[in-house]
Design a protein around this nucleic acid. Structure first.
Lengths: 258, 258
DNA sequence: AAGTGGTCTAGACCACAGT
DNA sequence: CTGTGGTCTAGACCACTTA
């Protein structure tokens, strides 16, 4: 017996029951963590004990059965519902999802992190900077009205000299700190943006497109080659401050699990 | 926009009757919910009070300042860290993320849900079923070894008669319940899969590709047209049971926010 | 050794939605 | 009405990391 009684402050009856039955804290024994509850639930789903579409026991029932607090069960079931494994409704209960839908967490890393995580060196070069208001898509994303100053920045990112990403970004100059061409010769727009303003909301869109002439040249592929496009709108306090289109060559993949 | 007296509840809890203090339910008053704490933190980040890269107060300090339990603060900060807004490390503290990275939740709905959510009618047709072991990619994803029975199912989904998605799926027949051609004439493979086995893990990959001849014909586009490809591997208890490639025409977008 | 986040608990009240 | 999930609280212990 190690630490004899650490629960003296709480009800001693609880402590006795714990010793006799559940043994909450043994050497290699399993504790009642929310992860263990989640694993237990997953196991019952996997084994078929709880089939797709079926109603599972209530939080209270599970807490009693597993000998843990309802809050712990709640945490576990909430995580599973977050991932689309379960569906929860008040008064009704918790159901095993019968659909093939999933909610996966997608990492949209900064390009620098993405490249350096592979042990490669990021190369960045500013290709073009102009005050053109941009295409209709960019104007719409930025809620541009007449007179708004918009700056378009075009640049290329390389991973160990190989083209990695071609980026066009439109910045709402009226809603951002001062910047000029020298700013983006020294630093990628998104890094400057992250340092300069606390972006509070981001929207993303992913699609497949044929490479434009400019993108094709920068990426070293033939015009019309399929490229993966990630559109990103950054907002600050409901006001869009930047709209970016990032183009990745065909070898690029966005991967995620569960 | 806020009025000056937010802390009446905590003040009265100390001075007046327990009833009024413990239940601060006033008409328009807001309680200390974890959402309100999250909003408060976001507001301070947005206002620049807490700049990117900066260390914010500890959970305990925030709990005291906001007059709520530390668990409530923890929930709020955990949600923000989940979204990539904050970074937390034990003993060090909580920092405002200075990078442009974000973690967004991507919904990969079942095709039926996706189409019907737009008020359209889903059309499904089985195009082809064969026992071919499939390309190297599929064999690798399914961990195929010699002798494993693999069935390839090719099908087309339509939304109100317009081609919506061309799908190729390879099924590990040795790890699944019995099925045959009639099974998938009646029901899309993923719906049958979701009904039949409790898929416990899914992996996704998103890329842009030129449409193959088969995909182009089914989708009604020219061969070589860029298509958005979503690859999905479903696993049951660590064993891959299906590998699917879904091809979407150029108009298709995956959208997400936050 | 000490400080910070991570989690568990037991109890309580509330919000919502079927009955 | 009743039952279910959603959340808050106060306290406690634990895990990890830095000093």
């Amino acid at each position: 017996m190690e630490n004899a009684q650490d629960h003296m402050t709480t009800a001693s009856a609880e402590g006795l029951i714990a010793f006799a039955g559940v043994t909450p804290r043994k050497r290699g024994a399993r504790m009642n963590t929310w992860q263990s509850v989640r694993a237990d639930v997953m196991e019952r789903i996997r084994s078929g004990e709880w089939a797709p579409g079926m109603l599972i026991p209530t939080e209270h029932e599970l807490a009693v059965e597993l000998g843990c607090a309802r809050a712990t069960v709640n945490r576990a079931l909430r995580e599973l519902a977050d991932g689309g494994i379960l569906q929860r409704r008040r008064k009704v209960g918790t159901r095993v999802t019968a659909r093939a839908s999933r909610r996966a967490r997608l990492e949209l890393p900064a390009i620098r992190d993405e490249v350096e995580a592979l042990g490669q060196t990021l190369g960045y070069r500013l290709l073009h900077l102009t005050t053109a208001p941009g295409p209709a898509e960019a104007r719409k994303a930025l809620h541009i009205i007449a007179g708004t100053r918009v700056v378009q920045v075009t640049s290329i990112y390389r991973a160990d000299e190989a083209p990695h990403c071609f980026e066009q970004i439109w910045l709402n100059a009226d809603a951002l700190p001062r910047f000029d061409a020298a700013t983006f010769e020294a630093e990628p727009p998104h890094e400057w943006l992250a340092r300069s303003v606390p972006v509070t909301q981001a929207q993303f869109s992913i699609l497949a497109e044929p490479a434009s002439d400019g993108a094709a040249e920068a990426l070293g592929v033939a015009p019309g080659t399929p490229v993966l496009t990630i559109e990103r709108t950054n907002s600050l306090n409901q006001i869009p401050v930047s709209f970016a289109r990032q183009f990745y060559p065909p070898c690029y993949r966005l991967a995620m699990a569960d």
